[in-house]
C-alpha cells in the first residue's frame, strides 16, 4: 500500500490488516502513556483545504501517538488562501521532505492529483464528493467491534448518497469485507447509475429497518433542499429521518451510526443519537486508532506497530 486514495484500492486482506492493526493500537490509547515511538523522525503533513476540525484533530492525534512530527498546513492564513495552486503546494511539501501527506479538499480527485506530484504517501482524508476511506475504515472497525463480524452484516446507509464521500467509501469497503449494503434515499439523492454499484437500493426506510443490523445516517445539507432535491426539511425528516418510532422498528441488537457532524432533528432525533445503541462517540475514538493503523502501514516500514518498547 503506497497511498490510500480510495477504499476500493484495499483488498480484503489489506482492509482486514488495517482493522486488526487498529485493534492492537487501540490498546495503546487506553494506557496512561499513549505514545509509541514507531514513526519517530517521520514527518506527516495535514493539508486541509476544507475546515474539518474533527478530522484534522483525529489525524493529528494519530500521528502524534506514533511520535511522528506533524505539520498542520491549513488553507486559512497560508499561501493557499492567496491562490497558490495545489501543484505548487505539493512541490513545497516535496521540498520539505514530507513522508506522508493527509489531504482534505473540496475537489473530487485532489488526493489522486497530489499523489502524482509528491513522493511521500498520500492519505485521502476526504476529497469532494468522491471518497473518505479512513471514515469507512473506522465505520467498519466500529461495526466489527460491536457486532463481532462484518461478513453477512446487513448495513443500511441512509441519506444524501449522491453527494456523500462517506457513502462511496463505505459501499466499496463493506462490499470488499462481505457485508450486505442497502442504500436508502429519495431517488433525487441517489446517483443515476447506482444500479451498477455492489449494493441494494431502496426508497423506503421503514421497509429496510427491520432487516438491518446497522443503520448509518448521513448528514443532509440544507442547500440540497434549495436545489430541489427534496421539498422541505419536514418532509425529508418524515420520510427518511430516524426518530423514536422508526428506531423501535430495529431489532434489539441493531446499532445506529453517524459520521458526524449531525443535524439533530433533521436526519436523526436527539434521543436516538444519545441512545446506548448509537455508536457516535465510539466512532470518534475508533477514528484515532484506525488512522494510527493506516499511518503505520503506509509509513511504518518493517517495525512492528507496537514495537518492543524503549
Amino acid at each position: 500500500m503506497r497511498h490510500l486514495l480510495s477504499a476500493g484500492d484495499l483488498s480484503r486482506d489489506e482492509a482486514t490488516l488495517v482493522l486488526d492493526t487498529a485493534r492492537e493500537l487501540a490498546q495503546v490509547s487506553s494506557r496512561s502513556v499513549k505514545k509509541l515511538p514507531t514513526l519517530r523522525g517521520r514527518t506527516v503533513v495535514n493539508l486541509f483545504y476544507e475546515d474539518s476540525t474533527r478530522t484534522r484533530i483525529s489525524f493529528e492525534a494519530a500521528a502524534k501517538r506514533m511520535s511522528a512530527d506533524v505539520i498542520n498546513f491549513s488553507a486559512k492564513g497560508s499561501s493557499v488562501s492567496k491562490g497558490e495552486s495545489l501543484k505548487d503546494t505539493a512541490l513545497t511539501l516535496q521540498a520539505m521532505g514530507a513522508d506522508g501527506v493527509v489531504i482534505r479538499h473540496s475537489a473530487s480527485g485532489a488526493a489522486r492529483r497530489l499523489a502524482g506530484w509528491v513522493d511521500g504517501a498520500v492519505l485521502n482524508a476526504g476529497d469532494g464528493t468522491h471518497e473518505h476511506p479512513t471514515q469507512a475504515l473506522l465505520d467498519a472497525y466500529t461495526m466489527r467491534e460491536r457486532m463481532g463480524r462484518l461478513e453477512g452484516l446487513r448495513v443500511a446507509i441512509v441519506g444524501d448518497i449522491r453527494h456523500s464521500r462517506v457513502a462511496r467509501s463505505n459501499v466499496l469497503l463493506l462490499h470488499t469485507l462481505g457485508a450486505e449494503v442497502t442504500l436508502v434515499a429519495p431517488p433525487t439523492l441517489l446517483p443515476v447509475s447506482v444500479g451498477t454499484w455492489p449494493c441494494a437500493v431502496s426508497y423506503d426506510l421503514d421497509e429496510v429497518l427491520p432487516k438491518s443490523d446497522v443503520v448509518m445516517m448521513l448528514r443532509v445539507q440544507a442547500e440540497r433542499m434549495r436545489a430541489a432535491f427534496f421539498p422541505t426539511a419536514r418532509e425529508y425528516s418524515r420520510r427518511y429521518g430516524l426518530d423514536r418510532d422508526r428506531f423501535a422498528r430495529l431489532h434489539d441488537d441493531a446499532i445506529v451510526m453517524h459520521p458526524g457532524p449531525m443535524i439533530r432533528g433533521m436526519e436523526i432525533s436527539a434521543e436516538v443519537a444519545d441512545s446506548p445503541r448509537s455508536t457516535i462517540t465510539e466512532q470518534v475514538a475508533n477514528g484515532v486508532s484506525v488512522r494510527m493503523a493506516v499511518l503505520y502501514l503506509l509509513l511504518g516500514g518493517s517495525e512492528s506497530a507496537i514495537g518492543n518498547g524503549n
Binding site: S108, G109, T129, H130, R168, P191, V192, T196, W197
Partner: peptide
C-alpha cells in the same frame, strides 16, 4: 457539470453532464 453523467462520474464523485 464536470464530466459525462454515468457510471464513471458517479464513482468519481464528479458532477454529471447528462
Amino acid at each position: 457539470a464536470q464530466m459525462n453523467e454515468g457510471v464513471v462520474s458517479d464513482r468519481l464523485g464528479l458532477a454529471g453532464w447528462p
